[in-house]
Design a binder for these strands. Structure first.
Length: 256
RNA sequence: GGUGCUGUAGCUCAGUUGGUAGAGCAACGGACUGAAAAUCCGUGUGUCACUGGUUCAAUCCCGGUCAGCACCA
């Protein structure tokens, strides 16, 4: 790939489906530009989840500096917003040394947060979140709907009211701030002091599926089942609500 | 070789006391601003193994064939 005539500085964003070859391609690019990689993969953040998230290999990690890979523990709280802030902060430093920085990963919401920004919302309060979860677990989605209908009729009108996670989030913000969730959603354009170039990698589905199947075989050979067994006590954590892990938890529970 | 069980969607299986069939998962399409590899919504996929018979009508009942499994020889 030969990319010229970038304004400087530029964030090169590589996205695409699972197993398309983002990591490999990003490393090539980073070498070409003698720069570093920021991962935008919401599961490779967790240092305990290596095999099942197709972590970059030690050789890959040694060949190019990576950020946001294995930087968190599965027990840590994390969010898109934190990611946005931390990446922007990091980029101001990186762009002092590099004209180009590569960002790659499959978590679209996280990429959008960095590129487009997200609206100002308060960070969730653990106690309020617990109240919302309790309400849902004890009284179900109908209770969430009733609350949201009263506290944020505008959101209720347009939202997917069958999606309990979105309802919980809306209610959480309403309770925490005393204002309707929709009041915060301003879709403001955020200014970024760098240029961006986005590339979406893709392959024919057949090939993609074949690559995914082979990758899963390799993961199993590398000891995915052992990794999952080690993480079994933590299977209720959000980080482990992840494809590849869920299924093996079910297998260990004799459900699959 | 004998006996029994099984054969229905890509997979695992329901079901029809005879009126050409449905769940979960997968697939495909879409939504989603601090839990996003999450969560939610939509779409139906089919020689009901094959072949004769009974019947107005067979995926269902009866016979045969084939395949798989189990047990007995």
């Amino acid at each position: 790939m030969n990319i010229k005539n970038f304004k400087v500085p530029t964030l090169l964003v590589i996205s695409g489906p699972t197993a398309v070859g983002k990591t490999e391609f990003a490393i090539q690019l980073a070498k070409q530009y003698k720069t570093v990689i920021i991962s935008a993969d919401s599961r490779q953040f967790y240092k305990e989840m290596r095999i099942g998230t197709a972590f970059p290999t030690p050789e890959e990690l040694n060949s190019i500096p990576h950020f946001f890979v294995g930087n968190l523990s599965i027990q840590d709280y994390y969010s898109v917003s934190k990611y946005e802030q931390e990446v922007l902060q990091l980029l101001t430093d990186l762009f002092m040394k590099h004209e180009v920085v590569v960002m790659t990963g499959g978590s679209g919401l996280y990429i959008d947060a960095v590129c487009k920004g997200i609206d100002e919302l308060p960070d969730p309060d653990a106690e309020v979140r617990k109240l919302v979860v309790d309400l849902f677990e004890k009284e179900g989605a109908e209770a969430l709907r009733n609350q949201v209908r009263i506290l944020d009729p505008e959101f209720y009108q347009n939202a997917d009211i069958a999606n309990y996670k979105r309802l919980m989030r809306a209610l959480e913000v309403c309770w925490q701030t005393g204002k309707p969730y929709s009041w915060f959603l301003k879709q403001t354009q955020h200014v970024r002091h760098f240029d961006m170039a986005k590339y979406y990698l893709n392959r024919p589905r057949e090939i993609l599926f074949d690559r995914i199947n082979k990758r899963v075989d390799v993961m199993m050979e590398q000891g995915l089942l052992d990794e999952v067994k080690t993480l079994y006590p933590y299977k209720c954590l959000n980080a482990l609500n992840t494809v590849g892990y869920k299924e093996l938890f079910d297998y260990l529970d004799h459900k699959m």
